[in-house]
């Protein structure tokens, strides 16, 4: 990770930031292994540069963006809460660009309703993608509704804590959607496609009753195997302290995003 300049963005929090060492050593990134420590331990040979992101599908001007072009967008620092579907959370100072800005460049067609994302497949650099046991089907895929993708809170992140993204956090470019569970934040993106129908999403395909397409943080809708009412803030409270806090609807971003779901039954569309 090298230093990365960004201007302070419009989103800040009163919550204390999660220590950098926790943000970069406690990760879910199954392409590098299913253990929380696996991504930081076994992503050393991953090469995040050179890199291109192909943006295609229902757009007027499909384009492949080189990493340098992406870094040339105005970069902002955004301090966001991150709520994992596993009932833990962090506060992370991301650096990134609003996804809407990138989408503007390719001019989505009127028929485009959804945005599909794809992670790179490199078994030779990503041990979780190689061998007899592979926990998920690759490439990892995720998707958003177009209005969610264009929301000002939604960013493509290229860094955190003032530096380029470490491999274990999804280098060189990943999605951050702070009102949704962390697994929506697809990492090491190589392709973004605009589609008319809801795109397939990896965890939703793996266990549709546990992981919905929307995956909005919602304390009122439990995961079948655990409650989502509370969360454990990583790096706080320690071993004996009561570090459980209540989970907020839309992860605390309800004022900004609740209107996107007006009239929807969020228990059915979880």
């Amino acid at each position: 990770a090298t230093a990365l300049k960004a201007s302070p963005g419009p989103y800040k929090l009163d919550d204390a930031m999660t220590p950098e060492k926790d943000v970069t050593s406690y990760n879910n990134y199954y392409e590098f292994g299913t253990g929380k420590g696996d991504p930081s331990a076994s992503s050393g040979s991953f090469k995040p540069s050179p890199w291109t992101v192909k943006v295609d599908g229902l757009v007027t001007k499909p384009k492949e963006f080189g990493l340098e072009e992406l870094l040339a967008f105005p970069l902002e620092e955004r301090i966001y809460r991150m709520r994992c579907v596993e009932a833990w959370s962090m506060v992370i100072p991301w650096i990134g660009l609003p996804l809407a800005g990138l989408l503007d460049k390719v001019e989505p067609l009127g028929s485009a309703k959804y945005v599909a994302f794809e992670t790179v497949v490199r078994p030779e650099e990503m041990p979780g993608q190689a061998g007899y046991f592979q926990p998920l089907e690759w490439p990892y895929r995720e998707g958003l509704r177009l209005d969610e993708a264009r929301h000002p809170l939604t960013i493509l992140s290229v860094g955190l804590y003032g530096k380029t993204l470490p491999n274990q956090n999804g280098a060189p470019i990943r999605l951050v959607v702070p009102w949704k569970y962390g697994f929506k934040g697809i990492k090491s993106i190589v392709r973004i496609s605009l589609t008319e129908t809801p795109p397939p999403c990896t965890w939703n395909l793996a266990a549709p009753n546990e992981y919905g397409f929307y995956a909005n943080v919602n304390p009122a809708v439990d995961h079948p195997r655990w409650s989502q009412a509370t969360e454990n803030r990583i790096g706080e409270g320690g071993f004996f302290g009561a570090n459980r806090r209540d989970t907020l609807p839309f992860n605390g971003y309800g004022d900004e995003v609740a209107s996107l779901y007006a009239g929807m039954d969020l228990t059915a569309n979880f």
Binding site: S25, Y26, K36, W88, F239, F240
Partner: peptide, 15 residues
């Protein structure tokens, strides 16, 4: 290790 803050990440879950 947990009590002295040396378990990484989510110490309680690790323990």
């Amino acid at each position: 290790l947990g009590a002295t803050g040396k378990l990484p990440g989510n110490a309680v879950k690790e323990f």
